[in-house]
Amino acid sequence: MLSTAGRRTRKRVLIIEPQALFAPYFADTIATIGFDVVGVDAAPRARTLQRLRPDIVVLDAGHLPSPLRTVRALRAHLPGAHLVVYAPLADEAWPLLAQGVGADVVMGPRADEPDLLAALAA
């Protein structure tokens, strides 16, 4: 992507990962494949979203009390952002429901690094 000044700019990614154990892996992996990780947080916070204005949000919805509500709120805060959600939720309808409230890509438990790359680039 080229900015108006002609410099190559990288898409800004915010990672929301409640499992701190896994957050560095996602940050490193996403940075390595060419994105600018602007923030890592354990939960979606309105102030953080407004301050960072990410192009892409990667959300681990697996341990959220209300995952669909969270996806809907993220979409409302960041209408133009690309929203990637991953979760091993048992309900087979969950991916469709999540897309219905604003997720652009929903990844399941079998998703691997190429799937993550494809999801970010989609």
Binding site: Q19, L21, F22, P24, Y25, F26, G62, Y86, P88, P109, R110, A111, D112, E113, L116
Partner: peptide
């Protein structure tokens, strides 16, 4: 680890 990406994270650690 049931999730592939989390498994990669753990193995990497």
């Amino acid at each position: 680890e049931s999730q592939v990406l989390f498994a990669k994270a753990l193995c990497g650690i």
